[in-house]
């Protein structure tokens, strides 16, 4: 009985150590991740670059494909939120206009975007 108890104590302690090792010390490392796994900062960066590329080549179909690679459930809403955050954070207006040019294609506009969009339109 005592042996079983000791074995159970050992098992519990071992499981705890195993979880600690597997989740914190040697976690599974992913080297081949996809765009959707990027940190939100890099996702925002990616979207700005897609917007810049769209500005350069005017190829909306390709820009839309690249945005789709983010696998956001509602890309329009995601882009709108990103634009709002970028404006609030005082980001580079040129980058914001890149994003707005894509939001326009998606039919997304808001009052906050207007001053930047007007510059773009003018």
């Amino acid at each position: 009985m005592k042996r079983i108890l000791l074995a159970l104590i050992g098992l519990a302690a071992g499981a705890g150590i195993g979880l600690l090792l597997g989740w914190n010390v040697w976690p599974v490392e992913y080297y081949d991740t996809e765009i959707p796994a990027l940190h939100s900062t890099y996702k925002a960066e990616y979207a700005v670059m897609v917007g810049a590329a769209y500005q350069m080549d005017g190829d909306w179909e390709q820009a839309a494909d690249r945005l789709a690679a983010l696998e956001e459930t509602d890309i329009g809403a995601w882009l709108r939120d990103l634009i709002h955050e970028s404006i609030a954070a005082g980001q580079d207006p040129v980058s914001i206009r890149y994003l707005i040019s894509m939001a326009d294609q998606l039919g997304v506009r808001s009052d906050i975007m207007e001053p930047f969009a007007e510059e773009d339109d003018g």
Partner: peptide, 8 residues
């Protein structure tokens, strides 16, 4: 038990 626990 410890060894088994770590493996698990």
């Amino acid at each position: 038990g410890l060894a088994l626990g770590i493996v698990a």
